[in-house]
Amino acid sequence: MPFSISLTVNGQPNSIALDDPRVTLLDLLRERLHLTGTKKGCDRGQCGACTVLLDGRRINACLTLAASLDGSTVTTIEGLADGAELHAVQAAFIACDGLQCGYCTPGQIMSAVGLLSEGHAGDDPERVRELMSGNICRCGAYQGITQAVLEAGHVLSQKTGVPDTGVQENGRNAA
């Protein structure tokens, strides 16, 4: 029986008709909204490629049923840049070569944005490595990823005094 949910995706409010209660947030984004930046690596919450921000918190989109998200706000990789301006984390990933094949990259970046906004990492590489360990990179770009998270954290905290990632707890873009 079709039903609808209201879901704000990257700042855009949507009323989404769901014909199937089995649809995960990941498959909703990829196969129905065609927001394919969020990747499916395992569909079991084991690799982190599908990491998005749900109401500002990092989640695995593959483990989340879309039907349970009525009234929620989702930020995906497509919603991170401010128009033509890359988010500091995105820019740092390029500068530090924190990517190779690029498939895990959207998930890595969303995790990084999440952990920086939570203020967990500080400037300690060991903590960054630990906190980024829910995101597997098979190419082995970890050194660049760690460096990128540290550099982006530095850039963000210089801007505002705190590492404001532009995504607040309610998930709305601060800009």
Binding site: T36, E78, Q90, G102, I109
Partner: peptide, 27 residues
């Protein structure tokens, strides 16, 4: 040089095979 495909990859615009949705697609 930094990667020429860096921007596409950090913005989610690099398209991998399963990102395609031709009209009338079956799964």
């Amino acid at each position: 040089l930094t990667r020429r495909d860096g921007i596409l990859k950090v913005t989610g615009r690099a398209t991998y095979a399963a990102d395609n949705h031709p009209e009338g697609l079956l799964y």
